[in-house]
Amino acid sequence: MDFKDDELYRDITGLAHDTPAWVQHTAELWTEGGLLLFGALFVAAWWRARRGSTTAFAIAVLAPVATALAYVCSELLKSGFTEERPCRAVAGAVPSLAECPPTGDWSFPSNHATIAGAAAVTLALTRRAIIWLTAPLALLMAFSRVFVGVHYPHDVAAGLLVGAVVSVVAVRLGTRPVTRLAQGMRASSAPFARWLTGPGPAAAHAAPYATHRR
């Protein structure tokens, strides 16, 4: 496939080579390490949702699951399009900052951008205000994949879109059944199930009341 953005790819990677070494190293670290940050945000969203409603808890649990599903969809698309990486295919481009993935690890769409797009959206579904953090992080993740030279701009744009759409659909379809499961686990006598799902909002409101009574 050819979206005619070879020139934009050359411009961005050329700019990358003109930046200071610390910027290049930071981009190389972020392009992989950003995934760990999204993982930490998923854990924080789950922990916070333990004292929320069962619906809020269900969405927090579905967020990483929906992101994983988006990643699977991205992999399936890669197998269908089999687009070669720009670090091998674009003539006249500077060498990529990151190691060019081997042939067979196709370029379209970007898995990293898909994960970032899905994570940004699903985390925002758990708490709307966090979109002001997750959206810039996702865009930075997507741009970094072009900056280090391993993706075309259209790869990351498609990845963000795939991640956002697939994850929203997955959360919408999964919220009701997971909410019912969470309700059952919160009513369970099993300590681990109750710890995993948390006490819910009732316990959060009961604690201050109990303190006041004493």
Rank of each mutant, 00 (worst) to 15 (best):
D2V: 05
D6L: 02
E7T: 07
E7P: 00
L8K: 04
D11P: 00
G14T: 07
A16Y: 04
A16E: 10
T19L: 15
P20M: 01
A21E: 15
A27L: 11
E28W: 04
E28N: 12
E28P: 00
L29S: 10
G33P: 02
L35S: 13
L35K: 14
L37V: 13
F42P: 07
V43P: 00
A44D: 01
A45D: 03
R48F: 00
R51G: 15
G52E: 12
G52W: 05
S53V: 03
A58M: 05
A58V: 02
I59D: 01
A60W: 04
V61P: 01
V61E: 04
V61W: 01
V61M: 08
A63K: 03
A63V: 01
A63E: 01
P64W: 10
A66D: 09
T67C: 10
T67K: 01
Y71K: 10
Y71P: 00
V72A: 12
C73Q: 05
S74T: 13
S74H: 03
E75H: 06
E75N: 05
E75S: 05
L77I: 14
K78A: 02
G80S: 09
F81M: 08
E84Y: 15
E84I: 04
V90S: 06
A91F: 04
A93E: 08
V94S: 05
S96I: 05
L97D: 06
E99G: 13
P101G: 11
T103E: 14
T103K: 14
G104F: 03
G104H: 06
W106Y: 15
F108Q: 00
F108I: 00
P109A: 03
P109Q: 04
P109S: 02
A113G: 03
A113I: 00
T114A: 14
A116T: 07
A116K: 06
G117R: 11
G117S: 12
A119W: 09
A119G: 11
A120R: 09
A120S: 14
T122A: 07
A124G: 15
L125M: 15
T126Y: 09
T126P: 11
R127Q: 13
A129G: 13
I131M: 12
W132K: 05
A135R: 04
P136T: 04
A138W: 02
L139Y: 05
A142S: 09
F143S: 06
S144V: 06
F147Y: 15
V150D: 13
H151V: 07
H151A: 01
H151P: 10
P153G: 11
P153L: 11
V162G: 10
V162T: 15
G163V: 10
A164R: 08
V165A: 14
S167W: 12
V168A: 15
V169Q: 11
V171S: 12
L173I: 08
L173F: 10
G174C: 05
T175Y: 08
R176W: 13
P177T: 12
T179N: 03
L181H: 06
A182Q: 08
M185C: 12
R186N: 10
R186C: 06
S188K: 07
S189F: 03
S189W: 07
S189R: 13
A190L: 09
P191N: 06
P191D: 01
P191W: 02
W195Y: 11
G198M: 10
P199T: 12
P199G: 15
G200A: 04
P201H: 03
P201V: 09
A202F: 00
A203K: 07
A204Q: 11
A207P: 00
P208K: 09
P208Y: 05
Y209T: 08
A210W: 05
T211Q: 12
T211P: 00
H212I: 09
R213F: 10
